[in-house]
Design a protein around this nucleic acid. Sequence first.
DNA 1: ACAAGGCGTTCCACCATACTGAACACTTAT
DNA 2: ATAAGTGTTCAGTATGGTGGAACGCCTTGT
Lengths: 254, 254
Amino acid sequence: MTAPESGGIQAVDRAFDIVEALNELDGAGVSELANYVGLPKSTVHNHLSTLERAEYVVRENGSYRTSLKFLQISETARNQHELYQVARSEVDQLVEKTGEISALMTEEHGRSVFIYRSRGPEAARIDTCIGDRVPIHCTALGKAILAFLPEERRNEIIDRHGLPEVTRNTISDREVLAEELETIREEQIAYDDEERLNGLRSVAAPILDGTDSVIGSISVAGPTHRMQGERFNTELPETVLGVANVIELNIQHT
Amino acid sequence: MTAPESGGIQAVDRAFDIVEALNELDGAGVSELANYVGLPKSTVHNHLSTLERAEYVVRENGSYRTSLKFLQISETARNQHELYQVARSEVDQLVEKTGEISALMTEEHGRSVFIYRSRGPEAARIDTCIGDRVPIHCTALGKAILAFLPEERRNEIIDRHGLPEVTRNTISDREVLAEELETIREEQIAYDDEERLNGLRSVAAPILDGTDSVIGSISVAGPTHRMQGERFNTELPETVLGVANVIELNIQHT
DNA sequence: ACAAGGCGTTCCACCATACTGAACACTTAT
DNA sequence: ATAAGTGTTCAGTATGGTGGAACGCCTTGT
């Protein structure tokens, strides 16, 4: 549904629109798709044939689906992030230490992207999945990144995406956010108090590379009733910060 | 590098060629890419701009990379496979029971695709990754699938991809393969005796749906010295077969 | 059984548009 | 300073993507 924004190569834009539509519809036939993306059947058919020949799409019993070739692409794309390679096992350890959810995040095109996630058997079951893209201002992970981005880039992102109110606690005021980012820079720790999901609190720390620019962030998240007092304000922040530092060290001599 | 096969929409084929090239080069600049795919700089630039606008490509410090949007696509694509949803936890359990590597495979465009993989702390460290596509005749997982495909489709696949000799043990004779597939059908178990990787043996079972058509396979793999005698010929096959049956049952009432 | 509507597919003519090559800034190396 | 590399822009041309209509097939309803 990113249709209206044009300006590039039409055929390519349309191809990706079709891929996305296929995913949103959980697989579909030509007519259904054509109707969904608002293009003539023949055009859609032409695209599907091309995508199938290139093995990015599979047809099974009369219905088209996106293929697992995307899995291949995404795995190599993910492995190109040094952050993923280094921090993955640290996230797992964080889960063992805390029993909660831990996640790794990076920023792309002004939005937060979950690059890896792990959770203990007793941890909360939240909806977020790897690869999901969420507004950057409403998570601890996002704010940790935002705080350490160069100012111009930070403004650019906020201008482009705004500060939509996701829950009642979401910070949607620019001034308030600026202040909070200031404290995050001081403490190297960001909090999320049900700002994206009701009932979910989290603690995150930024991860900086050798040149002091943010390349991502790491967090621990859990249900509000377990995230309180000493644990929420002192213990978890210290643990997360420690792990973040370990990751930073590992990254610098690689 | 799938360039020569044409016949579809040129712009789309080229866009995906560029995406694949970006992955193979671990990120690249316009000129390097143009040279690699054999197209004029301006054309490549045009494609990259389009892909970046659509957020499938990211540029950072003068170099282009494939973005994690592919992660988003592939995650939903993978979740559309009922096999993945159901069998994932069974693979994990198989790892706990055996301490070896366990994997889940499906077939796409005549090749084997690893859909999920897990391994114990003491298990062999092999190169195969999720999303990888390998010839279908040289793994236990692939043969388990191949054996239960309709005959016409089986021939079609062999005609298209041949039977390349990957290791000294790979079955590259059509007759021999046909016989082995016959026994696989009888026993519901397939073996791989260093047919894809030297030193690696594995045992796999097909997974059939309600209508008796294969939708994938599941395996246990380990270093040859640990995969021998009773364990290799009786214990592991029984375990794998048991798990496969559990998965089949779970799939049928979903 | 036959019609009616659904589907995916094929065809072809037209004109939008993707491609190209050259010229343009710009940074980095010599 | 010069040169060689980079990414970017531009405009003309012919390529080839587009989309309407027609086709054949299978399913549905009566």
